[in-house]
C-alpha cells in the first residue's frame, strides 16, 4: 500500500490542499485561476479513473463516457427540466455510477486486458454517437448551451457566485470537490477496501482464496470510479456551461486523461494529480508553439512511457527506497 500512497499521505494531501487554497490570494490573474480550476476538475477525473486503471488493475479505456454521462445528465436535468444544479449534480453522479455498473458486468467477466480495453473504448464511442445523434435533446455537435451555473449561496453575508466568469466561487467549489474526493479515496484505500483492491490487482487467484467476493468488490470499485468521473463531468458542465459530444466523450479526452495518469504514475494516489497539473500547464504553455502543440503532446506521452515508466510519482518514491517486489502488477499475457 505504501507504493500506492507514499509515506504520510494525509499530510501530503493536506499540504496540497493548503497550497491550492492559497492560490487565489497569491495569484491576481483570473486566467491562471481558470487554468487551475480546469486542473482541479481533471485531477478528480484522473483519480477516479486511476481507481480502476491502476489500483484495481482493470485497463479500461472508456471512462470519458462516464464523464459525458455525468455532464450531460446534470446539464439536461437542470437546463432543460429546470431542477436545481445542486441536486442534478448528484443525479449525474448516480447516472455515471449506474452506467459503470452496467458496463462493469460484462467487462469484469473478462480477464484479457485487450478485450477490456477495446470493449470500453467501443462503449465510449457509442455514448458519444448517441449524444451526437439525439439532437432533439442534446443538440448534437452544435453543443448544449444554456446550462445554468450553480446557484449563488450566501455564507456570512458574502454571496458566492459560480459559473464561467465567476472565478473565485468556481475555484472554491472545484477545490472543495478535489479535496473531498481525494480524502474519500484515501480513507477507502487505507481501509479494508484498499487492501481488497490491491489484492485483486496483484493476484486474482490469491484474492479468491482469501474469500474476497471478487465480482462484488470489483463492481463496487468500478461504480465508485465511474461516479467520481461523473462528478468531475458535472463540475465541468456547470463551470464551462457548454458541452459537445466530441469534447466530452471524444477520443481526445481519452488521450488527455490517459496522458495525465501515465505521466503522473499509474496506480499511485498522488501521481494523477501531478499528471493533471503538469499536462494542464503544459497544454497552456504549448499554445505558444501553435502547430507544434499536439506533436509535443503526443511525443511527451510516448517518451514518458519509454523513459519514465513509473511516471513522476515513481521518480519521487524511487529515491528513498527500491520499490518492493510485487508493487507493480505483473500483467503478463493472460492466456
Amino acid at each position: 500500500m505504501r507504493s500506492v500512497l507514499g509515506s504520510r499521505p494525509w499530510l501530503t494531501l493536506a499540504l496540497i490542499a493548503l497550497v491550492l487554497a492559497a492560490m487565489p490570494f497569491v495569484i491576481d490573474d483570473n486566467y491562471l485561476l481558470h487554468i487551475l480550476i480546469l486542473f482541479l476538475i481533471f485531477a478528480v477525473f484522473a483519480t477516479g479513473w486511476n481507481l480502476t486503471l491502476g489500483i484495481l488493475g482493470q485497463k479500461t479505456l472508456g471512462h470519458h463516457a462516464f464523464f459525458a454521462i455525468g455532464a450531460y445528465t446534470t446539464a439536461l436535468l437542470s437546463g432543460t427540466v429546470g431542477l436545481s444544479p445542486w441536486l442534478t449534480l448528484w443525479l449525474g453522479v448516480l447516472a455515471a455510477a449506474l452506467a459503470g455498473g452496467l458496463i462493469g458486468i460484462p467487462i469484469l467477466r473478462i480477464r484479457s486486458m485487450p478485450h477490456v480495453a477495446i470493449v470500453t473504448l467501443a462503449f465510449a464511442e457509442i455514448v458519444k454517437l448517441l449524444l451526437a445523434n439525439w439532437k432533439d435533446v442534446t443538440r448534437g455537435e452544435l453543443g448544449l448551451w444554456g446550462i445554468p451555473p450553480f446557484p449563488a449561496i450566501e455564507i456570512g453575508g458574502t454571496t458566492i457566485r459560480f459559473g464561467a466568469g465567476q472565478i473565485a466561487g468556481s475555484f472554491a467549489l472545484a477545490l472543495l470537490a478535489f479535496v473531498a474526493v481525494h480524502a474519500l479515496v484515501l480513507w477507502l484505500l487505507r481501509g479494508r477496501f484498499g487492501l481488497t483492491m490491491v489484492a485483486i490487482r496483484d493476484s486474482q487467484l490469491a484474492a479468491e482464496s482469501l474469500s474476497i467476493d471478487l465480482t462484488r468488490s470489483k463492481l463496487a470499485a468500478f461504480a465508485l470510479s465511474a461516479a467520481i468521473v461523473g462528478l468531475s463531468g458535472g463540475l465541468y458542465a456547470h463551470y464551462l456551461q457548454i458541452l459537445t459530444p466530441t469534447s466530452t466523450a471524444g477520443p481526445e479526452m481519452l488521450v488527455t486523461l490517459l496522458a495525465m495518469i501515465i505521466l503522473g504514475g499509474v496506480g499511485t494516489f498522488f501521481g494523477p494529480i501531478f499528471g493533471a497539473l503538469v499536462l494542464t500547464a503544459l497544454t497552456e504553455y504549448l499554445r505558444e508553439y501553435g502547430d507544434l502543440r499536439m506533436l509535443i503532446y503526443g511525443a511527451t506521452v510516448t517518451l514518458f512511457v519509454i523513459l519514465l515508466p513509473r511516471g513522476v510519482a515513481g521518480l519521487l518514491t524511487r529515491r528513498g527506497r527500491p520499490a518492493a517486489a510485487g508493487d507493480e502488477p505483473a500483467t503478463a499475457p493472460e492466456t
Binding site: 480495453a117 481519452l254 501515465i262 506533436l295 506521452v301 512511457v305 515508466p309 502488477p329 505483473a330 500483467t331
Partner: peptide, 18 residues
C-alpha cells in the same frame, strides 16, 4: 518492462497523436 501490455497501448496512443 513490467506491466508492458498496458504501457504499450499508452505509448502507441501518444505516437498516433504525434
Amino acid at each position: 518492462r513490467e506491466d508492458w501490455s498496458f504501457r504499450v497501448i499508452a505509448a502507441t496512443i501518444g505516437l498516433s497523436v504525434a
